Simulated scan of single mutants.
Amino acid sequence: MIRSILVSLFLATPSMAQEIVDCDWQARADAIYEPWEEFSRTYANGDVRIALLDTIEPAAGSFHLLVLSPPFDELGGRQCQTIGLSGGAGFSGIGFEELAADYDPAIGLMFGVQVQYYDGELGDFISGDLLFSLNQSTGLIEAFLE
Rank of each mutant, 00 (worst) to 15 (best):
M1K: 07
S4A: 12
S4V: 08
V7I: 14
V7Y: 07
S8F: 06
S8Q: 12
S8V: 06
F10P: 00
T13R: 15
P14K: 09
P14F: 02
S15V: 15
Q18W: 08
E19P: 00
E19W: 04
E19T: 10
V21I: 13
C23A: 08
Q26W: 11
R28F: 15
R28I: 07
A29M: 14
D30I: 15
A31C: 10
Y33E: 13
P35E: 13
S40L: 09
S40A: 15
R41G: 03
A44N: 12
N45R: 14
D47H: 04
V48W: 07
R49C: 10
L53G: 08
P58E: 10
P58H: 13
A59C: 02
A59M: 08
A60C: 04
A60Q: 10
A60V: 09
G61I: 01
G61E: 02
G61R: 00
S62F: 07
L65H: 06
L65D: 06
V67W: 02
V67E: 06
L68F: 10
L68P: 00
S69W: 07
S69C: 11
P70S: 11
F72T: 05
L75A: 14
G76Q: 14
G77W: 15
Q79L: 09
Q81W: 09
T82E: 03
G84I: 03
S86F: 06
G87Y: 09
G88A: 00
F91G: 01
I94Y: 06
F96H: 00
E97G: 12
E98S: 11
A100D: 12
A106F: 04
I107Y: 03
M110T: 07
G112R: 01
V113M: 04
Q114P: 01
Q114T: 12
V115P: 07
Y118V: 00
Y118P: 01
D119V: 00
D119Y: 02
G120V: 00
G120W: 05
G123K: 03
D124C: 00
F125S: 08
F125H: 12
I126R: 09
I126T: 09
I126F: 07
G128L: 05
G128V: 04
D129Q: 09
D129K: 02
L131A: 02
F132V: 01
L134F: 03
N135I: 06
N135M: 05
Q136L: 15
Q136S: 12
S137M: 10
S137K: 11
S137T: 13
G139N: 01
G139W: 03
G139C: 04
L140Q: 13
I141V: 15
A143I: 09
F144E: 00
L145D: 03
E146G: 08
E146K: 03
